[in-house]
Amino acid sequence: MGVSHIPINNMYKSRNRLCMEFISFTLLFFLVSCNPIKMTTDSESEIIHNYQKELSFTVVLPKYLPKNCTYFGAGVQGPPIGFTKEWFEVSYYDPLKGNIHINETDEYHELVPTSDNYSYIYFSSVRVLEEELVFDSNHVHTFWYEWNQNGIYFLVMIEGQSQDERHKLVDSLITH
């Protein structure tokens, strides 16, 4: 087979070299592998700008950011949890644009809980569905918040953080 087993240190001299190995391996391999893009914060304003061109409402970002968090696209990038840097993401559905969905995932936009671990909480007069989802098979644990305000459907995912921090963050997305 022409196969040998060699220490990994002998294969790659540097991370850059590894990247070149990636790129050169085959073109097609990578063309199908270029999945989620982690955009840099300096392009954040341009991302918002681009969204804004297509939406009928002003893109809303949280006014409150927990410690060590930065804006990141239409969401927030926070302290890494494992390999995950994005622990917060906000999605919108714009009813006036019909088929324009910004990270929107649900067909019906109804505040229906999916498990027993939920409650409805109020920020000012806005009713927010708070739901804790735990998937035992993969030990995945997330909090989800949903609400409608001014005809816009909001969906927010938060991983980790205390309840107080989560609530402050959600509250800061709501127009009072």
């Binding site: 790129i23 073109l27 990578f30 063309l31 989620p36 390999f83 989802l133 997330t142």
Partner: peptide, 15 residues
């Protein structure tokens, strides 16, 4: 799905 579909990222296409 949204939570676990978190995979390798590339900022630009490899070519």
């Amino acid at each position: 799905t949204i939570k676990i579909k978190n995979t390798v990222s590339l900022a630009i296409t490899p070519g």
